[in-house]
Design a protein around this nucleic acid. Structure first.
Lengths: 191, 191
DNA sequence: CAGTTTGTTCAAATTTTGCTGAACAGATGT
DNA sequence: ACATCTGTTCAGCAAAATTTGAACAAACTG
């Protein structure tokens, strides 16, 4: 008969009691990250690491989340690339160990900097180019066509201004100066 | 021989000169919206409408972007649902006409309110639940297990605080009070 | 140096997503 | 009531993304 009091490390069925809660939290973060444009596993892996007091190996992670080692390798690599996870090593151990970067605020800033900022900038450039082409195309025209191109030109300049504002907004967030400190309780972290 | 001076409405090849620029701008917005989690066509359609001085029909749109009427109907419906596009009608015309909501700022706020806010809220709830379960599970434990659960509990409370901060941040954006007005030139719009 | 252990890359298979044409439904005019 | 025009929904197809097992590569052990 199966010993009901087995503490933790049974092969299959008897996960520690808290494992379910941990997975729920990881899934929530996974949804967040997926929505946010990353692989869903990145959020799940990061959360498991973030909740673990000890660095973990790929084998640990692969077992906890029931993922193939390739999937773990891929998503973990991307997390490392984004600076969300760091490799560490243990004397005497050959495996790589991973631990979560715990300053979420810092992570957010990095993502906005490397991703959103570029994206908006590209869009703004496209709007600017289009505007310029319209500007050239409208010279010498009159009547209905001219009215239409003037309208388009004005609208494009509006889009341009908006992207510039967005760029600045994100820039301020990245620089950490966007938030009125009085509005939020501390978002600083222990790290 | 083909009359070179045909004004605009040729069947196929001779698009107006400015069409290319318009499409480039639409594509930029499409990329932005796709990245942002919407269908890419939503951004493209909206831009075409935004740049047009006159309301347009589905046929116009479908022809401009070379999309099937079903694709137009689908994405346009979603745009209407998000309040990014409005239907209008012309006396004597049976078709529906569409025009873009031109206050981009208002749109952004609506999206954040209806989407991001819910998303973060759900994540926060999940973190809270997990935290509570851990809290219950750790009672009466000692030693290694207790330490681990205490750690998890503390980390979950951190995630909880962060989501709360995020919720508040987005809330302020939605309420229009997040931005330090001195930091940005006017984001107000003509409407 | 041969044999392990560990991590990464690759191609095939599966799943998911997006798009289309056709069927359908609603409305309008004859 | 019928015919026509317009917009929406749906089943099937095509393209894209994810996932996996296996091959490969690298680092270490004895």
């Amino acid at each position: 008969m199966p010993s009901a009091a087995a503490k933790q490390e049974d092969p299959n069925d008897s996960q520690p009691l808290w494992r379910e809660a941990e997975l729920r939290a990881a899934d929530a973060m996974g949804r967040l990250m997926e929505f946010w444009g990353f692989r869903r596993h990145m959020g799940r892996l990061w959360t498991i690491l973030y909740l673990s007091p000890e660095p973990m190996t790929t084998a640990d992670l692969s077992e906890t989340l029931q993922l193939s080692s390739s999937a773990v390798s891929l998503s973990l690599g991307e997390l490392v690339h984004w600076g969300a996870v760091r490799k560490t090593w243990r004397p005497g151990e050959r495996k790589d160990f991973y631990q979560a970067e715990s300053s979420v605020w810092k992570l957010l800033r990095r993502v906005y900097e490397r991703r959103e900022l570029n994206l908006i900038r590209e869009a703004r450039e496209a709007f600017g180019d289009a505007q310029q082409h319209i500007d050239e195309a409208r010279r010498g025209l009159g009547g209905e066509d001219r009215r239409r191109l003037d309208y388009m030109h004005q609208r494009l300049s509006r889009l341009n201004a908006l992207s510039k504002a967005g760029e600045r907004l994100v820039g301020l967030l990245v620089a950490g100066r966007m938030i009125n400190p009085a509005d939020l309780q501390s978002v600083e972290e222990e790290e």
